[in-house]
Design a binder for these strands. Structure first.
Lengths: 214, 214, 214, 214
DNA sequence: GATGAATGAGATTTCATTCAT
DNA sequence: GATGAATGAAATCTCATTCAT
C-alpha cells in the first residue's frame, strides 16, 4: 500500500491566506495593547502560527506594525468619501455622513484604527504623516468642503470651517475610540446610533431652544 | 560665617518634595514615550535619583502611573467644577467650561494624559476604572447636570444628555489628543482658542443659519 | 563521507532531554547553596544554556524548584513502596525498608532535598504541601500500614502507629540531613549502613536486655 | 512655663533592652525564613526599630546571624544536661531525657534552633562547628554515656552507642523541626507528648511482641 | 514554507548597606 | 542613640530576534 506523494498540502493550502491572517491578528493585538505591549507570541498565536513565521513575512516588529496599519488605512478613506456624494444639499450631506458612522463603528477592522493611530502616532512619525495625509486631510477636505458650500449657499451660518471640522467629527471619533478603550470597563455601553442622532441635532440646530424653527 | 564648600553630598533628603518630583518626572517620561516604553531608569535619572528610590515611594511602575494620573488630573476636574459653580445660567456655564480648556491644553505634559489613557486603558483595567470613575464620570455628571438644568429651565432644547455629553466634550478632547499625536506632523497647528470659540458657537446655536436670532 | 568540521553551532535543540538536564543542574545548585542563594544564572550556566532557556521550561524559579523535588523524590518513594510489597512479614518489611536507605543517602545531590525542604517549607507553602502530600504522607501510609498489619497479626506490640512512624523514620532522616549539614565539620563521618543496622535492631527488639529472645 | 530638661528619656528607657529585643526578633525571622530570605526590614520591624538601628549593634547581616544564633545556643546545652542527672539507672535516665523534651519543644526561643542550624550549617561553617562542639557533641556524650553504662551493667543490650544515639535522639529532633517547618501546612498537628511516650516504649522494648516481659 | 528551541539584551524589582540628620 | 531616605548591585523575568531542522 504505497503512500501516494502528497504535494505538501499542509502548507500550500494556506499559503495565500497567510499574510491576511497575520495582518488581521496583528492589527487586533496592536489595537488592544498598543505597539509596545503587544507581543509577537500573542500575535502569532492569534493567527494560528508560530513566532518564527512572522519573520518570513516581516523583517521585524516595527515593520510588521507599519505595514499592517498602513494597509488597513486604505479602506477607511474610500468608504468614507463614497457615502457623502449621494446628496447635494450640504445639510443632507452632513446628516448622511454622520448617519453612516454606526456602520464604521461596527466593522471590527476599521473601528480599531483611530485608537491605534492616536496611541502610536507619536512613536511612528511616518505612519502619522501617512494617516494625516491619506485619512485626516481628506476627511477635512470633505467636511470643510461641505461647510463652505453650505455657507456660500447661505444654508450654514459663517464659522471657521477648519475649527468647525472638529465639532463635526470629534464626537464620532470619540465614539469609536471609546469602544476600544473604556467601554469594557464601564457599566453602561454607549448607544452609537442615539449618539449620532443627538449629535446631528445639536450640530445643525444647537442646544439653545427657540420659539420659531427654521 | 561663610558657607564652607559642601563636599558634594551623595544625595539629599527630600522626604516631602520627593513624591511630587518623581511624579513630575514620570509624567514627562510617560508623556514622551508612553507607559511601556518609558523606563524606570529614565524616570529616575530625570528626577535625579536612582531606580531604587522610586520604590521607596511607589510599589511598582503601574502604581506610579496611577499616581501620576491622579495627581495630574484630579485638580483639573475640580477646577472645571469650580468654574461651573461660579455661574448660574446653564448657557454661561457651558461657555465658561469650554473657555478654561485652552489653559488645560497648555499645561505642560498634562494634556498627554487623555491620549495615554486611551492607549493604555486596555492594559490596565484598574487604572481605566479609576480614570472612568474619577475623571470621566465626574466630567459627565458636570456636563449632564448643566444640560438637564438648561432643559428644565426651558433654556436648552430637549436632547439625551448622555449623548449630548459627547458632542460637548469630544471636540475639546480631540484637540488635546491632536496636540500630542498629529500636530507635529501637520503643517498648520490648530488654534485651540479659536477652536473653542467656534465650538461654543455651534454647540449653542447650531450650524444652520436663521433669519431671527435669539 | 567524512564529517566536516562543524562551525560550532551556537546551540543545539534538545527538546526532550532539556527538562531533565535543567532539573539536574538546578538540583545541584539548590543542593549546594539553598533555594534563595542559588541563582538562575548559575543554574543556567551549569546546564550549559542561558537564563532565558530556563523560562522555556519552567514559569519561574519556584516552579523549577518544585519540579526538581518532584522528579527527584517521587521515584524514590515508589521504590520504597515496591521494596515493601516484595515481602509479606511486617518485620521483614521494616527491615527491607530501612535497608534501602543507604542507597538513597548515596544518590548524588538527592539526599539534600529533605534538608532543603525543612529549610524552605516556611517560604513556599504550596511546595510544602506538595511535599507533605507526595512524600511524607505516602511514607507515613507505608510505615503505618506495616505497623498496623504487624499489630493485627500479633507480630508487633500495640502502639500509636502515627507516633511510632517518627521513631521508625526520624533516625534515617537525620542521617541524610546530617550528611549535608554537619558531617563535613565533624571528625568522624557516620557509617549509614551501621546506623541502619543498629536502628533496625533497636526498633525491633528495644534497648533493654532480656534473658530469652524471640 | 519653662520646659524642664528631659534627660532624653525616649531612648534611654530602652537602651539596655535593645540588644535582647533585636536578637529575639532576628532569631525568629531567621528561623522562619532562613538566613537568605529573612530581610533586615522585617527583623527591624519585628523588633520595633528601623533598619539603621541594626547596624548600630551588628556590622552586617551575617554577623547579626552568627551572633544571635551563637548566643541562643548556650542555654540549650546546660538545660539539656541538667535534666539527666537526677537519676542513676540508665533506663530511667533515658526515660527522663525524653520526657522533658516537650518542654523544649514548647519554648519558642529554643525550639527554633535545630531547624535553623540544619538549614544553615552548610553556609556557616564556624557556626556549624560551634553547634557541633557545644551542643551535638555534648548531647552525644550524654547519651552514649548512658548507653555505655547501661550495657556495662547488663541493663541494655550491646549495640554501637554512636549509632544508637541517632535512634534515641532523632525522633525528638524531628518533632521540633516539624513544628517549625511542616506543622503549619499539615491538617493534624503532632502530639509531642504522645510521640515521646511511644518513642520511649519502642526504644526500650522494641516493636516486636513477646510472651514474657522483663 | 514553517517551526520552535535558544538566545541575550534589557526590563522591573529587591534589599543589604550607608550616612546626613 | 536612632532614624529613614537614598543607594547600587544583583536578582528574577520578558521578549524580539535568530537559526537548525
Amino acid at each position: 500500500m504505497a503512500r501516494t506523494a502528497q504535494p505538501q498540502a499542509r502548507w500550500q493550502r494556506r499559503k495565500e491566506a497567510r499574510p491576511a491572517e497575520l495582518a488581521r491578528a496583528a492589527l487586533a493585538c496592536f489595537a488592544e495593547r498598543g505597539f509596545a505591549a503587544a507581543s509577537l507570541d500573542e500575535i502569532a498565536a492569534r493567527a494560528g502560527v508560530t513566532k518564527g513565521t512572522l519573520y518570513l513575512y516581516f523583517p521585524n516588529k516595527e515593520a510588521l506594525f507599519k505595514e499592517v496599519v498602513r494597509q488597513a488605512l486604505v479602506p477607511w478613506i474610500a468608504a468614507f468619501e463614497a457615502k457623502v456624494r449621494a446628496s447635494d444639499s450640504p445639510t443632507h450631506q452632513l446628516e448622511r455622513l454622520i448617519s453612516v458612522w454606526p456602520e464604521f463603528v461596527a466593522a471590527p477592522h476599521l473601528a480599531v484604527l483611530p485608537k491605534l493611530m492616536i496611541a502610536e502616532a507619536g512613536n511612528f512619525p511616518e505612519l502619522a504623516q501617512f494617516y494625516l495625509r491619506e485619512v485626516i486631510a481628506r476627511a477635512r477636505r470633505l467636511v470643510t468642503g461641505i461647510l463652505r458650500r453650505g455657507m456660500a449657499r447661505g444654508e450654514f451660518r459663517r464659522t471657521d470651517p477648519k475649527a468647525a471640522f472638529f465639532t463635526v467629527i470629534a464626537p464620532l471619533l470619540i465614539a469609536v475610540v471609546w469602544r476600544h478603550s473604556f467601554e469594557q470597563h464601564d457599566d453602561t455601553p454607549i448607544d452609537v446610533a442615539s449618539l449620532c442622532k443627538t449629535h446631528t441635532a445639536i450640530l445643525l440646530d444647537g442646544l439653545v431652544a427657540r420659539k420659531e424653527e427654521r
